[in-house]
Nucleic acid binder design. Structure first.
Lengths: 201, 201, 201, 201
DNA sequence: AATGAATGAGGCTTCATTCAT
DNA sequence: TATGAATGAAGCCTCATTCAT
């Protein structure tokens, strides 16, 4: 019985996103996804042709969404500190949705570099905006607002502090015997402290 | 690669470690591993019974090694700052060998929690030592050496700053058009700055 | 291609005939046929219930048409040689339309004999007319117009000389580096020589 | 239980040859072939990697064998008539083994021309030998031994008379209500008459 | 009459694993 | 210890077909 009108395609895609990027289940089969979405497995091929296509589409969309939201912040006219603050907020939103996005990209890039070429070259004006942001970082160092280091390292620190706790969540849950709720509380507290970590005093 | 020669069993295990934990190829088949080791695929089962056993053994060994080295540092009588310094050095050594160790654990924990139970419970006196370290962190905060935050967050920050750049290496290579050598240089520079990030002025 | 316009049913059937019997594409899917006809795949089932029904209908129609035209010639009051001459002409006409008709029947008969039963039993007066023709052949041999052999062999020779060059066309195109046009010219020339092959001097 | 020592590969190939080329079952699945050979389906992939590879290997081998045997005759120093006589014998031997060889090639050439390229270009000195044979035919015409026509048409006639009755066997069995034995007898008689068909008186 | 969505059957292939030597 | 052969499970995908509109 067709239940979802014309939204089955969306349903499958969203389910795949959840399984791949939220739950981090790289090995999910087409059957797993179909079951989770409550649809016939064949429909997955009907709409997306192959698991591979779906897999990549899901990545591409999530990455594009993340990139666009981040670039919006980077391109804004806010003061640097405020910009970072917004960046953290935006990144948190996305990481809650897709904590495994970066991990997967990293894993896949090692294995099939060619396939992910476009994900990095395809952004119009992306490299430029990135360069501008690095310059902005340099300026802040020159002004003494942030510690001296290579701007790229500041950039990496920023994303490390934001992304890593999401990726490593299951480990720390075990390691410190935390509930999901408790860990979420921790993450919220971190949100504020990340900025203070990055800026002097 | 220096491999304990003459022992096929060792050879297979080391090869599997390299493929899984260094190259991050989660999908490597027994054939892939056997080929990379230059041995017959069947030998893998002869020595390790199944892919799964090998897979877990590799994790367990790598994690145990890492844990022991870290605990050695944590349990030492050094001053806190010096301890952190040593920790970074030790962790860097391990991450160079197995950059994907944590990532894989995180990925696997979501999918087969039961299987990784022992990796966290099996450490004698582990939890205790961890608690002591968290207390030590708290003390440093009380002394005003490091910024106020939950000790766990300091702990997570520490590992985020160390681990993330290794895992995300392929992404940043692409994003900033860096060579492997240039990225390695960056990582070395980070090593020093991590400590200064964590401590006040 | 002249197709009975406005009737989708006709269009599908004609397209199927072309694909199966003219182009010899046994493996054509319902999608292939629908695409070639420019209609929705489902219509194929709407009109013909199943691929199988369409497949057989196409055969039956083509075979019936061929049979009727041949029987008309066989049953005519012409002199034997003239009859053969007409037969060749008629058969050529049909082979140009459906070069793979006989090949397919032969292939299918091995695989699903039951299904093609009716194609051979369903011709009213067919066996009789065939027998009469064989007798006519015998008479011609007795009169010394054609070489002595079993009448059936004469019959088979006749059809071999006519049909084989159509079926094997792709092979000879390759083998002798011929264009389609050149091969067609060859076939036209053969038309005349077939009769002279079959009759004495 | 492994029954056939190291000959399983051969067994599978021979079975596939029989099914494809002797029985003319183009649609045979890997399961059909494995069942007929009495082996596990997976072995087919173990030895041949894919159905496609097996399919093509079978064709290539059969065609190569046929070609080599025919070329041997064509290149012999026998008198023309004797040569044709031998050719018929050799071709009969092969057609009894693989009656559908030519039919399949013809069918496949329409659908995947590229794949069969090598089957025609790969024969060393093939084209030349063919040309020489055509010249030989021309000479025989000039000498008045055979009827005047394009040499290629003589060539095609020869193969039509030989090959067609094998391909169309199932049709004529039905059409003339013949047993297999009776049809075989017919074919044997044809063997002699083919030569007399091709030569003047 | 026509169409997009949905489904079940079945094919090909890969993989981990076991057997026999 | 080592290896080629064999096997079962399971995955992906395509296809014919049906449903609902």
């Amino acid at each position: 019985m067709p239940v979802k009108d014309c939204k089955t395609e969306q349903l499958i895609k969203e389910t795949a996103k959840r399984i791949f990027l939220t739950e981090g289940n790289m090995f999910a089969t087409t059957q797993d996804i179909a079951d989770a979405a409550g649809v016939n497995r064949t429909l997955l091929h009907y709409y997306f042709r192959s698991r591979d296509v779906l897999f990549n589409m899901v990545f591409k969309e999530a990455l594009t969404e993340l990139r666009e939201r981040l670039h919006e912040v980077l391109g804004s006219q806010l003061a640097f500190k405020q910009k970072i603050d917004n960046l953290v907020s935006v990144f948190y939103d996305e990481l809650i949705k897709f904590p495994y996005l970066e991990t997967f990209i990293a894993l896949q890039l090692n294995q099939e570099p060619a396939k992910y070429e476009e994900l990095f070259t395809g952004l119009p004006g992306g490299k430029e905006r990135l360069k501008n942001f690095l310059k902005e970082i340099q300026r802040e160092m020159d002004n003494g607002h942030i510690a001296e280091m290579k701007p790229i390292n500041f950039f990496i620190n920023l994303f490390a502090l934001m992304a890593y706790p999401f990726v490593a969540r299951p480990i720390y849950l075990k390691m410190f015997d935390l509930t999901d709720a408790a860990y979420n509380k921790l993450l919220t507290e971190r949100k504020k402290s990340i900025v203070s970590m990055l800026f002097k005093n």
